[in-house]
Design a protein around this nucleic acid. Structure first.
Length: 114
DNA sequence: CATCTGACGATTC
DNA sequence: GGAATCGCCAGAT
């Protein structure tokens, strides 16, 4: 059920499922959706996301925890401040303890069957 | 219709 | 070990 959605919508749902104080990477989401290798599409979906206001896109960073998408938050450090407000420390546009706050949907969302 | 770009990632040099 | 390059796929011009 709810499995025949567009690739983009699936990205939005996964991003919305990211718990508080956690972050994930585009590749992790892409892989979870079965689009491993198409990490660009995940970030691209965000840019085209109409639900961007309801999607905690600030919790989505690249594989090294670098806030590559901060430029899309108005060009300010809004993205960084949003993460820091959740307890995620940012330094030079990079997430500190990224390994600790990293949330992998492939691991945290097991099975999701009935 | 052809070409480029783009919030990435992994590999090669 | 940092830099450069290819691969992904879809949208925009």
């Amino acid at each position: 059920m709810a499995s025949e959605k567009n690739f983009f919508e699936r990205v939005y749902e996964v991003v919305k499922l990211i718990p508080y104080g956690r972050v994930t990477s585009y590749g992790a989401i892409a892989r979870y959706l079965g689009a491993a290798g198409s990490a660009r599409m995940v970030g691209w979906a965000m840019n085209n996301s109409h639900d961007m206001d309801t999607i905690p896109a600030q919790r989505v960073v690249n594989r090294i925890g670098l806030l590559t998408g901060k430029h899309h938050f108005g060009g300010s450090s809004a993205m960084q401040q949003l993460l820091e407000a959740e307890g995620v420390k940012i330094k030079d546009n990079q997430v500190l303890d990224f390994k600790k706050v990293f949330w992998d949907p492939n691991l945290e969302l097991p099975g999701r069957d009935s």
